[in-house]
Design a protein around this nucleic acid. Sequence first.
DNA 1: TTGAAAGCGCTAACAA
DNA 2: TTGTTAGCGCTTTCAA
Lengths: 337, 337
Amino acid sequence: MGRRATIRDVAARAGVHPATASRALNPALPGRVAAETARRVVEAARELGYRPDPAARSLRTRRSGLVGVVVPDIANPVIPPIVRGVENVLWSAGIACLLADTDNDPDREAALIAELRARRCDGLIVATATRADETVAHLADEEVPTVLVTRAVEGADLPLVAGDDASGVRAAVAHLRELGHERIAHLTGPLELSTTVRRLEAFRDAVGVDDPVVLHGEGFTIPTGRTLAAQLLERHPETTAILAGNDMIAVGCYDVLAAAGLRVPDDMSVVGHNDMPLVDSLSPPLTTVAIPQEEIGEQAARILLDRLAGDSPDGSAVRLMPTELVVRGSTAPPRRA
Amino acid sequence: MGRRATIRDVAARAGVHPATASRALNPALPGRVAAETARRVVEAARELGYRPDPAARSLRTRRSGLVGVVVPDIANPVIPPIVRGVENVLWSAGIACLLADTDNDPDREAALIAELRARRCDGLIVATATRADETVAHLADEEVPTVLVTRAVEGADLPLVAGDDASGVRAAVAHLRELGHERIAHLTGPLELSTTVRRLEAFRDAVGVDDPVVLHGEGFTIPTGRTLAAQLLERHPETTAILAGNDMIAVGCYDVLAAAGLRVPDDMSVVGHNDMPLVDSLSPPLTTVAIPQEEIGEQAARILLDRLAGDSPDGSAVRLMPTELVVRGSTAPPRRA
DNA sequence: TTGAAAGCGCTAACAA
DNA sequence: TTGTTAGCGCTTTCAA
């Protein structure tokens, strides 16, 4: 196969000037072309398998057709469905996704975002924000349209799409209270993430106790869950139900409870958050708050597309997608209700 | 902030011609610049925060600095670690990853690969190949360097990086036979995937029985595992150990065995493949073959980088990365050995 | 409605 | 070693 067809080849074949061919192929408003001419150009383009050179177009139009997707760790099970949703919507709009994985490292985040900007991404989807994330906060001042997913930055004027964690937590607490639990403890993830804070505030609101037991962890991981569960058993043995900050923390609780000879849910109820793969295959299957992750990604992508199209300068719009409590086998009435 | 600095701005500030500035910034071989000049240019570039415009550079050099990463489903837990490895190595080399998710749809795969080519990706990493994948097979004839991961195409002259499934399966079978199992059944995934065939062949080789029990499934999913396990119990009740095509199929087995009142591992041993997240938290924790997924991704990226650098036209090199049998609680000696 | 001309920012030949 | 020149392929004025 020879070199690929250019707009000049198309124009030549259609017997018109390249500029005319370009106009015919780009149904933009000004300078319409005659229907018959347009037909010939389109036909020629099809025959030649013409695809505009993105570099040339981008150089001219200052648009790359690229969106950067910044994730904390693609191997974290919460992230892939979000990316799927984003990717799906953006490809449909003719935009490609540059994936950037920060590995939860703020320096790497800064470097990758700089690189993404250097590559002239038309927009950014950011899933890595910490509450005090300077790098991300600065994006609000810059010209590159940005949408946050799941994690918010405090005080930054950036739109956010996330799961409605508060309502999920309220449903979880209501579920536990209906079962008869009165000693419910909350084992959180890292406080620098907005998700942790949203869940924590909702827990405090819903639990109906002045000073509920809350233990803070350093990560959203199984080891964190183990550490916290061990602390909980030692300091607050009267607890009958655990609301874990996420599913991994809940699994850590499973481990420690089993080691302590306590049974879930008979001796302790456990609720997770996220409904990640396989938590329904644990023993017992985990009751947890499901988040519509793919829809979150899709919605974020749509908002970004609107911005790219020049719409809505409504800075920090927050779009919360409905969550759902999935009741499984890890919750039951307390022993001595 | 005004418009971003161009090479002309840098050149002006350094008091040299743009071409000289370009040479100073690109430590390519021909046309070296004087050390002092280079220093001034680099300094000027730094002061101005100069970043070359990728579109302009790409238009000139015919290199986009982009690699397409084609995955069957980013939400499939096997995939993200691979992508991480790829992404990590490529970013380090100054190359960005365009993520394309085919959702296991051959038409979508064809469309996305066409799009990736239209966008002038310098190379492709493809994790979606089926054994008879025409779209991917054609890539061998094209000019765009391509590396396959995990899944091979039959007869295509394309390098592949994958886990050494055969050795993993051999280790698994050896483990079961050492425990005393003689009736080992293999429940496979879809036959159109090369992974299935590799694992199946290794199983046949290792099991030491003329006509071992093999049941074929249609997917690598929990429902598939359930279907196959149910068939197995009905048709081959003498079986004492199951080698599942992957972890999801193994989990499906767990479900059906429990429903049938059979205990793992006492009544039936089960071995998975992949060692995906949380299989170590199942009851019992799953014995499985771990695959170095991130290393596979890294290796694939390195091979692609070599190709981009013009190295090694050794077409269909196959690089198998060592797997490891992780023995957990789902395997034990058979009841009546 | 179409053509002519210019230029986006960069780098590769060639010349000095 | 550096400067000059040209052009990658496209779109967008402006003029016809």
